[in-house]
């Protein structure tokens, strides 16, 4: 009985802030402004404009996730091979930017990347042609990577640092060279961390709208921007909810695919 009481606050939290809002969104998504049932709002994701926004979101989110993996993985390996006190310093530095509000960081990035910004000032010092990166998809991906990289690094590093040194020593004992140790021991054991990192980066990148608005100069429309527009300007909450539900279904499907891959790699690990 007491245990159930202890769980009550969490139940209230989950119901009040997750389940009920989701039901509201689902309700809005499945109705017209007059309250009649419709699937139009969700099906609207297939209209050319929305499909284009979804594909662009997908493209940028994938690119962002791949870059994050490529940056985070080697870093985790380097940290693993460094001394213990160095490890905590690296962790601290990586977490540091997260102390600042992410919108502020994106605004700062906008100034750095702008045509007359600091980046171009430094480039011109070295007589390099200025980069016109602001207001392009590249700037958005840059901003996403900058913002979401810690969410990739932390789980990847966690899984790599927690690999038992004895396993590697054993592999060495049995005659494995450096490549084999990595490929047959470290890599498979790190996959769970990579998988959760991918989810934690891909999902926010897929739904981003502030980053694309600020660094894209309002010229690039991701699905997040469309949804935001429907809620705040067009006041079409039904369509906005419909597109949100479609996006959620899409992300859910992607996660399930990823989850299946994850299970297979678990099985693969047993085989190895």
């Amino acid at each position: 009985m007491n245990r159930k009481l202890l769980a009550a606050p969490y139940l209230v939290w989950v119901a009040g802030f997750i389940i009920i809002p989701l039901l509201f969104i689902l309700g809005k998504a499945l109705t017209t402004a007059d309250g009649g049932f419709t699937l139009q709002n969700i099906a609207a994701i297939a209209s050319p404009i929305h499909r284009k926004a979804l594909l662009l979101s997908l493209q940028l989110a994938l690119l962002c996730t791949v870059i994050c993996v490529l940056l985070a993985y080697p870093l985790a390996l380097i940290v693993r091979s460094s001394k213990l006190n160095q490890q905590s310093i690296v962790m601290f530095i990586l977490i540091l930017p997260m102390w600042m509000n992410f919108i502020l960081r994106i605004l700062a990035l906008q100034m750095l990347l702008s045509n007359n910004g600091i980046l171009n000032m430094i480039l011109s010092r070295f007589s390099i042609a200025p980069l016109e990166i602001i207001n392009t998809p590249a700037a958005i991906v840059f901003g996403m990577v900058y913002d979401f990289l810690p969410y990739m690094i932390l789980p990847v590093m966690n899984s790599i640092l927690s690999i038992d040194n004895n396993l590697i020593a054993a592999a060495r004992d049995l005659g494995a060279n450096g490549f084999h140790v990595f490929w047959k021991v470290i890599f498979p054991l790190s996959l769970p961390g990579v998988a959760s990192g991918i989810t934690m980066v891909f999902v926010p990148a897929m739904t981003a709208f502030v980053i694309s608005d600020i660094l894209g100069g309002g010229k690039i429309q991701l699905l997040g921007n469309v949804i935001e527009q429907e809620f705040s300007v067009s006041m079409d909450w039904n369509l906005g909810s419909g597109l949100s539900v479609a996006l959620m279904l899409f992300i859910l499907a992607t996660s399930l695919l990823l989850g299946r891959g994850q299970n297979q790699s678990d099985r693969g690990r047993l085989l190895w």
Binding site: N115, N116, G117, I134, N135, G216, G217, G218
Partner: peptide, 18 residues
């Protein structure tokens, strides 16, 4: 031809010479 679509930051961008 449009560099960006802005509301609040438009003035600052011109002030900064962007």
């Amino acid at each position: 031809d449009v560099q960006s679509y802005l509301v609040d930051e438009a003035r600052d961008e011109v002030v900064a010479g962007n």
